[in-house]
């Protein structure tokens, strides 16, 4: 598997990343959990939908909007590690 890294931390870099997504072929997309990316998830989801690329997104609302897949931790706990929870676009969860 070859990874293409798109570093996004500003609106300008987000614009560039979305242009790259539109221009370059990919079999899939992973959007890492980050407050900036979450804040701009609407644009990312719209782009994902246009490209019809399977995507792993960071939040349930994003994945539902995109019909994509999401994996996020359960609510963090003060003791022990959080249990990973898988949620698909229908909101079904599994371990």
């Amino acid at each position: 598997m070859t990874l293409q890294s798109l570093e996004v931390g500003t609106t300008e870099s987000l614009d560039r990343a979305l242009r790259v997504m539109a221009q370059e072929y990919s079999d899939g997309l992973i959007v890492v959990t980050d407050p900036f990316l979450s804040a701009h998830r609407t644009r990312i989801v719209e782009s994902t939908n246009r490209q019809k690329v399977p995507a792993v997104l960071d939040s349930k609302s994003s994945s539902r909007a995109a019909g994509s897949y999401r994996m996020a931790p359960a609510f963090p706990r003060c003791t022990g590690a959080p249990l990973p929870t898988w949620t698909n676009s229908q909101g079904r969860e599994g371990g």
Binding site: V8, D27, I30, L37, W86
Partner: peptide, 21 residues
């Protein structure tokens, strides 16, 4: 795990874009 999940959805995925900050 995100990679594993993507592989389950697209087993033949060879080129993947990762957006991160």
């Amino acid at each position: 795990k995100w990679v594993e999940l993507l592989r389950e959805v697209v087993p033949r995925a060879t080129r993947v874009i990762v957006i991160h900050n």
